[in-house]
Design a protein around this nucleic acid. Structure first.
Lengths: 118, 118
DNA sequence: CCGAAAGTACGATGGATGTCAAACTTCGAT
DNA sequence: ATCGAAGTTTGACATCCATCGTACTTTCGG
């Protein structure tokens, strides 16, 4: 018997509900430059992206950690496609919980160095 | 005039220019609940406040540390009045550098626990 | 079935950083 | 001149967290 075929639900840890998202956790997630870059890329492209398609300067295990933090903070939604874990920005829900926050953080600022990486 | 009367300028460390304020530093400053509370009180009251008038749950030396971080991040301006160090929110300048950020962070959110403390 | 690809899990580690107490400085008031 | 109030400075400490390497799991293609 081949390996037990787990459903996607079982492979992906749970996502928090919109009502459970706390500002504290969102800020702790977005204060890290690597995580802000991830969200920035999702924000500008507006499409789902596999973990491996991001231009991150960290190892794979560290990247996994960052995606976990983002998911637990309620910022992204994850689902599997084959061996690839796809990531979606929960834009509408975040906007509902914290109006204007994402836009304020993701807008490219003149003086600010790394607001949104390309 | 016995003692050398130092000017206020000499007693207070320098403040960064608006153009030098970085989003990274602002986020690192505002991710701490104590510092976000300080900014929150300044934001809602809109008046200068001495360090001692804040309802913080930390020691004096820790409070000093937090005010320093906020000043170095460009979020507050400080000046002496007697032995009291007064703190002003640099609201206009922050709004210019990061439009909408302060409002998004300081607005009271329903589900979010401690967006703006009292 | 086998191998490669994409991630995950698990320690381990090094650097920040929030915290405090104690000693000190500065200023206003008595 | 002295005392207290307000803050600062310094040093120590504990904890958190980003990071990595290695081993492991799952899936897809041949």
């Amino acid at each position: 018997m081949a390996a037990v075929r787990r459903s996607e639900r079982e492979r992906i840890p749970p996502h928090p509900d919109v009502r459970e998202i706390s500002l504290q956790q969102v800020l702790e997630a977005l204060v890290d430059p690597v995580r802000r870059r991830i969200v920035g890329e999702l924000y500008t492209t507006g499409e789902d992206r596999a973990c491996g398609t991001f231009d991150l300067s960290v190892s794979k295990s560290t990247a996994t950690h960052h995606f976990n933090v983002l998911r637990e903070a309620g910022l992204i939604r994850q689902h599997y496609v084959g061996t690839s874990r796809m990531n979606t920005l929960r834009r509408d829900e975040i906007d509902e919980a914290f109006p204007g926050l994402l836009q304020a953080l993701m807008t490219r600022h003149e003086a600010a160095d790394r607001a949104v990486p390309g």
